[in-house]
Every structure is written in C-alpha cells, then in structure tokens.
Design a protein around this nucleic acid. Structure first.
Lengths: 196, 196, 196, 196
DNA sequence: TATGAATGAGACTTCATTCAT
DNA sequence: TATGAATGAAGTCTCATTCAT
C-alpha cells in the first residue's frame, strides 16, 4: 500500500477525525451532565465534564437547543423509525401505537429535564421543538390514523396534542418513586379507545 | 365591638387587623403578578404590585412556596371540598371523579406556571407540594375508591399518581392553542375505565 | 419641639439621604475610574472603586450612558449656562464663542475617553449623545448666530458640526504632551472668520 | 540582480513568490473587511474573507498594527509622495498644504475606524502610529515650513500636532450625515493663516 | 507552513436574599 | 414592622491568541 498520496489526506482526515472524536466527547459529556443536572445545566459544567473550554461548546453547538438536539438525535431518530416497523409487525394498530408510545416514554423518562424543556415556551428552544415534532408527530399521526381507520380508537385526537400530552406525563418521572409515567401514559392511550 | 378599655389589646387588635389587611393586599398582588408573569415572577415585581417593600413579602412569606400556597389556598380548599359533594350528587362515581378532575384542571390551566412548579423537584417547593397533596390526594382517593368499588374503573391506580399526571398534563396549556389540557385529561380519565 | 411626627419623616429622609450620599459616592468613584481607565471601564472596576457591589451601579444607572451623563451633568450644565453670560459680557461675539469653546475644551480634555465615546455610533450611547447635544448645540448656535450676524465669521457652519469637530479635536489630548487640543481648537475657531 | 544559478534560490524564489501572492490575498481581504467592519474587525473574519486560517494572519502580521500598516502602506506612501509634488506645482504653499491635507482626509474618511485607532493610546498600536507619523509628519513639516516662510501662515504650529488634529477631525465621519470632516479640516487649515 | 480547534479571561446582567435605617 | 438599597453568585457569550496536527 502506498501512503505517499495519503499523507495530506490523512492529515486532513486526522483533523476531521479529531474534531469528530471531540464532538463525540462533547456529546457524551453533555449527556452525562444532562442526566446529572438536567438539560439546562450551565455550559461551564458541560465543558468541565468534557475537559474542554467553554468556547469549544459554543463552537460546536451555538445554542443550547443545538446541543440538546445533537445529544438526543440518534435516539429520536430510532424512535421515529420504529413506528412503521411496529405498524407492520402484525399486532393491531392500537397495540402498535401503544408500543411506540412506550418507546418514546422510555426515551424521555431517562432524560432528566428534557420533557420539561420540550414544553418550554422559551424562544431559543425553537430548534429543539421543531426537531422533535418534525420527527415524531408524523409517525404518531400514521399510527393514530391506522388505529382510527381500524375503528379501534376515536378519530378526533391530533398527533401533536397526543405527543405533547405524553411528553408532559414524563416530566419529573425518575425523581419520584411514587410516580410512574409509563403507567399513566398507558392510561392515556387506553383512553383513546372508541368509547362504548 | 368596643375596644375602648383595652390599652394594649386595642393596640394589638388594630395592629393585627392592619397586618391582615396587608396580607390580603400581598396575596392579591401576588395573584395578579402570577397571572401576568407566572408563579416564578421576581419578588421585586410582586412587592411593586403590592406597593410594599420586598422585605414585607419575606416577612409574611419566607419562601416562595409559602406565598404560592397562600395565594391558592382558598381555591385548593374549594376544590377539595367539592369532591364529597360531587360524589353525593347522584351521578356515577366515575362521572363524579371526572367532574372533580375537571375542576382541578380548570384551576390549574388558569395559573400560569403553577403546574410546572408543582412538579419541580426543587427543594424549597416542599411546602407547596405538601399542601396540594395533603389537601387533594385524599379527596382524589375517595373518588377513586368509590369508582373502583362500583366496578367502573380499575382499582390499581393510586390517587397520588393520578393527581401528578393530571397536573403534568396541565403544564404549558394556555400558551399553545394546539394543546388542550382538558381534552387530554379527559382521555386519561377515560383510560381509567375497567378495561373492556 | 415635637418629634413624634418627624420620626417617620426623618427615617424616610435618612434613607433618602443615605441613598443620595451613595449616589454621590458612586459618581465620584466613576469619575475617578473614568479618569484612570476611560469612560468604558468595566462596571466591576467602578463598583470596586466605590466599594459597592456591581448591582448597586446597575440600580442607580441602568446603562453606561446614564452613568456617564450623571457624572458629567453638572459640568455640562455649567458650560451651557456660561454661553449667554459670555455673549453678554461685552467682548465681540466671536471672542465670546472662542471663550465658550475653551470652556468646553477644558472640560473635555480632562475626561479621559469621553470625547471618544461622544462620537461613538454605538447604540446605547444615544442618551449620552442626546444629553450633550441637547444641552450644548443650542448654546453654540446662539453664539455662532451672533458672531455671524456681526459679520465676524462665516455663516455657513452648523453648530452641531462645530461641536462634533471640537469634541473630536479633544480626543486623546492629555495622553500626549505633543498634542494640545486647545491650540488646535483655537485654530479651528480662528478659521471661522470671514475669509479675506 | 541575477538569481538564475542558485538551486535553493529558485526554490526559495518560487516559495517567495507564493508567499507574496498569499500576502497580497491577505491584504486585500483585510482591506475589504476593514471597510465593512472597521479596522478592529475580528481576526477570524479577516481570515475567513481571505480563505485562510487565522494562524496565517498571525504568521504574516504578528500584531494588528502590522496588518493595518501593511494594508495602508501604499496609500500612505502615495500621500507622502504627493507633498513635494504639490509644493512644486506652482500654487502658494498654503494652498499646497490645503490640497495635501485634503488628500490625507480623503484617505482617512474612507477607512472606517482608522482615524479612531490612529489616536488610540493603546500600546500595540505603536507600530501603526510610528509608520503614519514617520511618513507623513516630515512632509507636513515641509509644507508648513514653506507656508510659514512665505508669510502666509503662522509659524508656531507643529506638523505632528496638525496631523493629529486632522486625524481626529476625521473620526466618525461617514457614519454621520451632519458631520463633514472635510469642511472642518478646511476651517482648521484656514485658521492657520497669519492672523491679521 | 497553514490550519482552525481549543482555550479561557473578561465583560455584562439579573435577581434572591439580607440587613441597616 | 416596613423599607428598599446593597450584595454578589451565577450564568451567558465573545474573541484574541496559542498550538497540535
């Protein structure tokens, strides 16, 4: 193998690789701090956890919303992608909806403070809201439509509203042993059934 | 009432009356500011609204939780007292529960930021949590028990959990036209029904 | 003498007196720091010089422009008031103008950085600009008009422009022994004479 | 000079040519950014405009003053060289001085922020001051001397002081339609005339 | 030599809470 | 008892400058 022509390439690549590794470090640090202190933790704390200067955080993630989105992007994506799969998996649409919502809840309840920030009307979290909603509302809509079409559930519930409701129910879970968001969300989903 | 003969007494009495009037002023001011800026509004704003110094607020209400509790005590009490009345009113227990929860939701959705603070795990809101829970959980428990006893709903839901869930669903309502806490709470309550 | 009714009064008075003394302390500290480090010195430095917390500066002077105006108000006022007096004093209008401008220069050259900030187009110094211009431009205008009416000077120079020019000439004087703003301003005023 | 036979030389020569081209790119980029954002624009912006890294700027121009000097060297030189020519051109020395000063003003008023930085007593602008003064003060001195010798103007004005004054009058021009540096400088130069 | 990621000092501003008057 | 001035910790964000690659 001839590495002559690769030197420049490897040099450029290594910078990029370093930067990428660093991003990864940042994301892990942020995730750690988010768990410990919530997603509104001081930038300085996140920088300290990552062992970098604060400027590095700002370079990679100009706003806090950018950082939060980056930290959770993979999980949100995975959740979004699970929707169609569940729908195709053979259970009833309502059951698929329930399982999909469970995935979302599983995600949220382990993210200290995320659910709270998701409903913040604070400008500057616009990006964050958008990402979650753009990604998840359509999936929720599909599941809802399918369940409504099958006659299992009422047809007057909007996916946006349902997602918000589920998100809200997840707020504060984890810090309170007497409160189980999963159970309540289960009730909410059960409440969607065609009244009769 | 004749306070003529009581030197110290009359002085103390009138002072007490003043103090009470003052408290009332404070509570009204706080309520006004809470509506305008949420229950986490700066102390200074509340003092300004009341036309008193900040020290006066602190004298009467050492912690913010004390102030919030005082502001909403009457409404919480009224809500608590409505429970037995609804139960006795002739509808099914589940319907009574639904109506009672509606009262609670009506209360919460008009109190900007209260629902959010109710779930805050921030130490210092201990008093606040306690008051709400001490007052409302037993009532909720009665209604829940009655509905469970009548076989209308499942019997494995704790009143504490339900109250927390309802409170959570109320977070952020009012600031978002696409989100109607009442409707979601309705679904949650519907979900309590004995499955099938 | 009955001091019963004065207690509250004297108490209120003393608070006001304290606050006023404090303001005075602040203004003196600011003046000192302005001389040492210019009018853009960090708020923290001014607070330290005054021996107060930073918040105290902000309480009294919400913006830097407010502080600067307050520091120099008396001197600007005195300068403004000197204009009509000089005009009435018997010398020719052009001589009066020259003397008045000298007063302004005497003021500016002892205020490290003030002249520089006076020409800053930085929004936020709006208040500062306004104060100086509102106060001084009309006076300058009177003197200019009188001198023009007497035929001593050309009549095509606007007071605003002249004040700005004089202000600019004062920039940096004091820090440079080879530069004497007074002399240059003298040339500028001389240059106003009717050509020929 | 013949550098043909020098092996290293030719390599060095081409490298030198590259470096020179690079320098040129840098200077043009800096000039562009200086016009857009003033001579105190962030180094990062200049690097971005040039399409190079910030380190490259620092390599070529260790201090900002070096960069500013390099950017304006040609124009300053041209201005300096115009002095003797104007003096020889036949007009009176005072008229030549006026025209030369106009050239300097034309240069300054089109350089956003340069006049301001020229009077900054900030150490680190030493180089900048020196260059301008070394280059222009002697020329100004010649013109001044000639005009003084001809009896047109007073003989007690130092060229250093005059240059500084003219520079100061140029501060902030361009950002204020009511302020015309050229007019004020005209008055200043007029003021040099032999009083009579 | 060039790059640009990283650093971190430095400035601003807000507000809960204390305490002298 | 009431007042509100004072405090200062906390958090944000920006850029000049350095240095590993």
């Amino acid at each position: 193998m001839n590495d002559g022509g690769q030197r420049a390439g490897s040099s450029a690549g290594s910078r990029r690789k370093d930067a990428r590794r660093n991003q990864q470090t940042l994301l892990e640090a942020a995730a750690t701090v988010f768990v410990r202190s919530g997603v509104e933790a001081p930038v300085r704390d996140i920088a300290a956890e990552a062992g970098v200067g604060m400027g590095t955080i700002y370079r990679h993630f100009p706003t806090r919303a950018d950082l939060i989105v980056a930290v959770y992007r993979h999980q949100v994506d995975a959740c979004a992608e699970a929707g169609p799969a569940l729908l195709a998996a053979g259970a009833t649409p309502h059951a698929a909806l329930g399982r999909w919502i469970d995935l979302f809840v599983d995600f949220l309840v382990t993210k200290h403070g995320l659910a709270a920030v998701l409903q913040s009307d604070n400008a500057g979290f616009e990006t964050l809201h958008s990402y979650f909603l753009d990604r998840l509302v359509p999936v929720c809509g599909e599941l809802l439509d399918a369940a409504a079409a099958s006659g299992e559930i009422r047809s007057d519930v909007e996916p946006y509203e349902l997602m918000r409701g589920v998100g809200n129910l997840c707020i504060g879970s984890g810090s309170d042993a007497r409160y189980d968001a999963r159970r309540l969300v289960g009730l909410l989903i059960a409440g969607l059934r065609q009244p009769r």
